[in-house]
Amino acid sequence: MTRRGLQGALLYGALFACAIYFLAPLYVMIVASFKTLAEVRESSITALPTVWTVEPWIKAWSSACSGLECNGIRPYFLATFEIAIPAVSLAVAIGALNGYAMAKWRSRAADIIFALILIGSFVPLQLFLIPLAITLRELSIYGTSFGLVLIHTVYGIPLTTMLFRNFYVALPDELIRAATMDGAGFFKIFSSIVMPMSGPIAIVAVILVFSGIYNDFLFALTFGETGKRPIMAAVQNLVASSYGIKEHNVNIAAVMISALPTLLLFFATGRFFVRGLTQGALKG
């Protein structure tokens, strides 16, 4: 074998070996979710189903029980979107405006606020739980969708602000200066010059914030509405408390269903995502 051929083989070998690590869990979950209960208990987790069945998926979606409720995870799905859509819109819109103000109207005070937010994103969320509960109580929205919309908007803002700020810093200042000279104001510049250029980073922000909210567990667990818990808390609860002989295939199917929206979003927007990420997040 030539030296180049050997190198190529090693290269692909290494890439394939790593691919196994990354694909194994997905493979194991997919095959398990299509097995009958008897088979999922007997057979090896790597074996393909001898009889393929969609029964676990149907059951997980619409009739698996948690406590007395046997509605599967469908209701939690809708509940999660009810929270995620307004929260993503708000967090992205506010983050864009904040990022623009910080990047293009720099002042020492704005820099300090940015630093406070940036360092703040390292603060463990546990520090916020008790005061959040009290705040939600004072607003009478504890245990409601509004409460979670507020929480996710608030804690989405640091990320969106950071993304947009870093993106806008790279825009030439001359653009803004020229527009100011032409008489455009702060908001006018934002809406007519800055916003139209924000496409790539906005997509990244929407994907990241949506995934963050959809995949959130801690807030869902602590502040979720009774019977309408957001999906991750609901799935974890279903897996932990489903009764009788544990239906691993149904549980795994439930986990797969809960993973699908963000997974599909990723596959659908992967190209944008990678491009946006490399343009935005890198330039800090």
Binding site: F22, P25, L26, S211, Y214, N215, D216, F217, M232, V235, Q236, V255, S258, A259, T262, L263, L265, F266, F267, G270, V274
Partner: peptide, 10 residues
Amino acid sequence: LYPMSLSLVV
């Protein structure tokens, strides 16, 4: 990259 789209619970 795809695992990043999944939640840590999953």
